[in-house]
Nucleic acid binder design. Structure first.
Length: 575
DNA sequence: GCCGTTTTCGGCCCGACTGTTTTCAGTCG
């Protein structure tokens, strides 16, 4: 059993305990344990084997026993028994907005409802309305929650949410009563998918009502979820919820921090502040009844005697401890950025010619571009055979001869076949400046087979980079099963690059593995995997992910200037 | 269930809003 499955089971135990009305702190202990396991970079099997598992923060005797049982036997009697005490549908019901453990329990106990379908039916028959603690409104809210869930599947791609946030920002800044305004939340953390948009503002107390009315009159509003004096939520026509919170100027930095951090980051930081004798909330930092003024987030961290934590890191994944020790890594900030790799052209499935791509890259002030069309196994994408590779190289030679201060690099996105071999032989591969190896078929192998397949592919001396390592399509397709820990380890040993595929549909390498990649000295490249000129600038999404993954400037290949990248590839090229 | 430089018990982050109540529980972030 793998790390993710263990985490999922622990989380589910937490939810079931919550449904059964068990001690809320016990419930939380399971959630915390799940999170710890989920964000592990060490191999879980090894930790269990050595017994170190019990030393992890948040994992005590009980949890370490259960995790060990899961790892060793693949199942957990405690979990199975617990699960058999409640219908599985309750676990779905709890995901509906407005329904928590307590209310699900009431609905189940009083009406015998044990699935979302039954719940919807009961709402339509007005059977929830008369339950204690429920009413007309809650019945209606649950019903629209079910509808919305069906329609929008809960999360949105980063650029979709970003676009919506910019529109609402442009709308709100027209209101002159607003003093400061920022978009916070997971958008500001540059998370790959986003559930809602959090906007924070400062204003005078007497202007709150007017601003909230203005927010509620947003032309692209679909409906109002709640509307208070300092906090309101609306649903946009696109289906995304948007929160607005208002505070006075003195509290703005605190609210901005509060609304930016993940729940876990905030919980941990407040706990730490408390250890130092402070109380911290979205309004300020307090020592006894004394208010400690901060006008920027930088000052807040300073007052807490820790490094400033960049937004992208505020996930509650160990950044607070590092900041306390003043050991936060220096993150790549997008500068310098000299060139792109992994660009498709009309030779395979791209929309633009090499020349058009070159021109667009020059407009972006880049020094080089790596052309990477598909290889012959990708017949669906008009992949290149050996003959057309030659043609393309001749064309690139001509273009290069005509260019000053810009270089076209010869790359290829070569298909990794089922057995891990590549669909060009070494003599063809040797013609390229660099080679990206990607899996495009046979996603359903076992984890072992897939891991072996990918490791074999990157072990080919001509392969420079691994392309989209898990094949996931965000909100669309699950990653294929692969032991990325092993892949990263091998990539580190062999000096192979793992791309951060920067297409907003992929953002793969997952940033959660960045820490491990760094530990193994693996470099990355922010590859837009562009299939048109418009896609070239997708690399900017990769910058956010690289920061979340804690990559520094030196670990990002795009920071190499033309001269340096050419000599890097030459050095890596087997002779 | 976890944790400990006030350690083996008694804490465990904190506040806004809603819908239901008639002072608050539940949910959410």
């Amino acid at each position: 059993m793998d790390r993710k499955s263990v985490a999922k089971i622990l989380k589910e135990i937490g939810t079931i305990l919550e449904l059964k009305g068990d001690n809320p702190f016990k419930t939380r202990a399971y959630y915390n344990g799940a999170r710890t396991i989920e964000s592990l970079t060490e191999n879980l099997n090894n930790l269990v084997e050595s017994g170190e598992i019990a030393n992890l923060r948040g994992i005590g005797q009980a949890l370490s026993d259960k995790i060990s049982t899961l790892i060793k036997t693949g199942s957990l009697p405690y979990y199975d028994e617990l699960k058999s005490t409640i219908p599985s549908g309750l676990l779905d019901m709890i995901k509906i907005p407005g329904l928590g453990a307590k209310k699900v329990k009431i609905v189940y106990d009083k009406l015998g409802i044990s699935s979302v379908g039954e719940l919807e039916y009961a709402c339509r028959e007005n059977r929830l309305r008369d339950l204690e603690g429920f009413g007309e409104k809650s019945q209606q809210n649950i019903l629209s929650g079910i509808e919305l869930r069906k329609k929008y599947n809960e999360r949105f791609l980063y650029p979709v949410a970003l676009n919506e946030s910019e529109k609402i920002k442009n709308y709100l800044i027209q209101n002159e009563k607003i003093i400061q305004l920022e978009v916070a939340g997971s958008l500001r953390r540059k998370l790959e998918t986003v559930k809602d948009i959090d906007v924070v503002c400062s204003c005078l107390e007497e202007d709150r009502k007017e601003i909230m009315d203005f927010f509620d009159s947003y032309p692209e509003k679909l409906s109002t979820i709640n509307k208070g004096e300092t906090k309101s939520t609306i649903t946009l026509e696109s289906g995304i919820n948007c929160d607005l919170r208002l505070v006075e100027e003195d509290s703005f930095a605190f609210l901005l921090h509060h609304s930016t951090g993940s729940k876990e980051h905030n919980t941990e930081l407040r706990g730490y502040a408390k250890e130092l004798g402070f109380k911290m909330n979205e309004y300020g930092l307090f020592s006894d009844e004394q208010n400690i003024a901060c006008t920027t987030e930088e000052e807040i961290f300073e007052k807490l005697n820790m490094d400033y934590i960049p937004c992208e890191l505020r996930e509650g994944m160990g950044e607070i401890e590092l900041a306390q020790k003043k050991q936060l890594p220096e993150l790549y900030d997008g500068n310098p950025f000299y060139g792109l790799f992994h660009i498709h052209t009309t030779y395979s499935d791209g929309a633009n010619t090499i020349e058009e791509i070159v021109e667009a890259c020059q407009d972006l002030n880049l020094q080089y571009v790596g052309i990477c069309d598909h290889s012959k196994a990708a017949f669906y994408a008009n992949g290149l055979n050996e003959e057309r590779v030659k043609q393309q190289h001749e064309e690139i030679n001509k273009i290069n001869a005509s260019l000053t201060n810009f270089k076209v690099l010869k790359g290829i996105e070569v298909d990794v076949l089922t057995d891990g071999s590549l669909d060009f032989d070494d003599s063809t591969l040797s013609e390229f400046d660099f080679v990206v190896a990607s899996v495009h078929s046979q996603f359903n192998l076992s984890e072992d087979a897939m891991t072996e397949r990918i490791i074999k592919a990157i072990s080919n001396p001509f392969v420079t980079m691994l392309g989209h390592p898990t094949g996931r399509l965000l909100l669309g397709r699950e990653p294929y099963k692969v032991n990325m820990e092993k892949v990263i380890e091998v990539a580190g040993k062999l000096g192979k690059v793992i791309e951060i595929n920067s297409s907003p549909y992929r953002l793969d390498l997952d940033w959660r593995l960045g820490k491990l990649a760094n530990e193994h000295g693996v470099k990355t490249a922010l590859n837009p995997d562009a299939h048109s000129i418009e896609g070239l600038t997708d690399y900017k999404y990769g910058i956010g992910i690289a920061r979340k993954g804690r990559f520094n400037k030196e670990s990002v290949l795009n920071t190499y200037n033309a001269k340096k990248i050419e000599s890097y590839f030459k050095e890596k090229h087997p002779h």
